[in-house]
Structure formats: C-alpha cells, structure tokens
Amino acid sequence: MVIEVKATITGNVWKIVKEIGDTVDEYDVIMILESMKMEIPVEAPQGGKITEFKVKEGASVIEEDVVAILE
C-alpha cells in the first residue's frame, strides 16, 4: 500500500532527517519544516518504508503538499 506523507503547514523544508529505504513507525519524524519561526516536524502517518521524497531541503511547500511516499 502506498501512503502519502503530507506537509502539515506552509513553509520551507529545513531538514530531511530520514533517507530513502528507511523504515519508520507511526509518528516518526521524516523531515522538519520551518514556518513562523517554528520547527514543524512532518511525521509518518503510519509505519512503512520510505520510497520517495517529493521535495529537497530548502524547497518551499504548501500545506497538504505530498512531501514523501511510504510503502
């Protein structure tokens, strides 16, 4: 099953903390966005394996943008 990981807020991708192929659990932080002077983590909505990043560090994202794909 393919799971889309979405940005929870509009901002910039500050740090991608996981790599493609990493296995994650629900609530694991995949990347961190920077918005309103806050560091906003993007968490795995459920457990899985990261197969793709849709953004690079420094990219700007809009709320609800798909930023990574889990399987």
Binding site: Y27, K37, M38, E39, I40, P41, E43
Partner: peptide, 11 residues
C-alpha cells in the same frame, strides 16, 4: 526541549 520545535498535540 527546544521551544522552537513543534510536536504532535493530537498524539
């Protein structure tokens, strides 16, 4: 610990 860091209040 870092007050600039957000977290999941729903959780």
């Amino acid at each position: 610990d870092n007050t600039r860091e957000a977290y999941n209040m729903h959780r």
